[in-house]
């Protein structure tokens, strides 16, 4: 019989250690089957959470060999095939506090979520009497974000969160804010948006982990782009993120290409650049990586590129 070696990170409230289990391989099972089998047949002290077994409750997510998975809907065979191994290492989700073994604490995350006011702030149009009606089309806008099952996979994989737990919002919190901002029944989208901006919205690294791992394929990074656009539409342009984005936007319009020499100054301003980026700039000049005298020439076809800009403006209005 083929055996799998399963290492699980245990935590008893004080100490953490890895424990090894040998489990006979069976075809066509799920990751949750594997955990349940270990608990039932080998070690009743092993702690993990699960409930619905149908990717609905969101309670069963774990890290396996460095990636987060929803245990109940992930085929064991897929994981073995991905890592080309019979050795699996289980750990609790990253970027969460751990209570015991694979069990994590959700309360602080829910507390943090209240920052974005995750509820409808009713607009003028509805009332208790007539209700809060929505067209089919309007409903479609919130269909994808409401698929979130709060499993925590995105947060576990988020690279910004890993280095900025207090400052940054979990991708599922951003999703929640998005959900109310685009809800046509909500009368105060800026009240959800402001806290998003204030909690390091521009620090998203665009690494694509969240969107690549979400078991519900929620378009998290498109939402982040939308949230950034929305803050700029609200007039929030005086920050590094917006200025950086506009540097690209404007350079392409003017020349077709990015002017890397001017990028820091456009993003940070002259004074800040002088304070923080001079050693970097000198290093780059010395190695011939930046030629301060090289200004990109206009590309051939720049007139045509500008027509695309004009047209995009027309489409928007």
């Amino acid at each position: 019989m083929e055996m799998m070696t399963v290492k699980i990170k245990r935590f008893d409230g004080r100490n953490s250690y890895y424990q090894k289990y040998e489990v006979p391989y069976e075809k066509g099972k799920t990751i949750l089957w594997l955990l349940t089998t270990i608990r039932e047949e080998q070690d009743p002290t092993l702690n993990f959470t699960s409930a619905c077994r149908h990717a609905i409750c969101g309670s069963c997510a774990v890290q396996i060999n460095g990636n987060a998975f929803l245990a109940c809907n992930t085929p064991l065979d897929d994981v073995l095939d991905t890592y080309k191994t019979m050795n699996l290492t289980f750990e609790p989700l990253k970027n969460f506090e751990v209570i015991k073994d694979l069990v994590i604490v959700w309360e602080p995350k829910m507390e943090k979520m209240t920052k974005v006011k995750p509820w409808i702030i009713p607009g003028e149009e509805g009332s208790k009497e007539i209700g809060f009606l929505q067209s089919e089309e309007d409903f479609q806008q919130i269909a994808a974000p409401t698929d979130c099952i709060l499993c925590g996979v995105c947060a576990s994989e988020c690279n910004q969160l890993a280095v900025n737990q207090d400052g940054y919002l979990e991708p599922f919190i951003l999703n929640k804010a998005y959900r109310y901002i685009v809800d046509t029944r909500d009368g105060a989208p800026e009240q959800h948006l402001k806290p998003v901006l204030e909690n390091d919205l521009w620090k998203c690294l665009h690494c694509m982990q969240c969107v690549s791992q979400c078991p519900k394929t929620i378009p998290l990074t498109d939402q982040i782009a939308f949230l950034r656009s929305a803050t700029m539409a609200m007039g929030e342009l005086d920050n590094q993120g917006a200025k950086h984005a506009y540097a690209f936007h404007d350079d392409v319009k003017n020349k077709g290409r990015l002017n890397e020499t001017m990028l820091p100054i456009k993003t940070d301003g002259l004074v800040q650049t002088a304070l923080t980026k001079i050693p970097f700039a000198l290093r780059m000049v010395k190695k011939g990586k930046i030629n301060p005298l090289h200004m990109p020439k206009q590309i051939s076809g720049i007139q045509e590129v500008r027509k695309l800009y004009e047209y995009a403006e027309e489409v928007k209005s």
Binding site: H206, D222, A225, R228, S229, M232, G241, H244, A245, Y246, F248, H249, D251, V252, G256, R257, L258, I299, S300, G301, I302, E304, V305, L308, Y309, Y311, A312, V315, K316
Partner: peptide, 24 residues
């Protein structure tokens, strides 16, 4: 006459524009 791809920034300002310049 290629242009910058937008480097993951232009779509934050205008998604349609980002698609358009890369379509070009």
């Amino acid at each position: 006459g290629w242009t910058c791809c937008g480097a993951s920034h232009i779509q934050d300002i205008d998604n349609f524009l980002s698609t358009s310049i890369n379509a070009r």
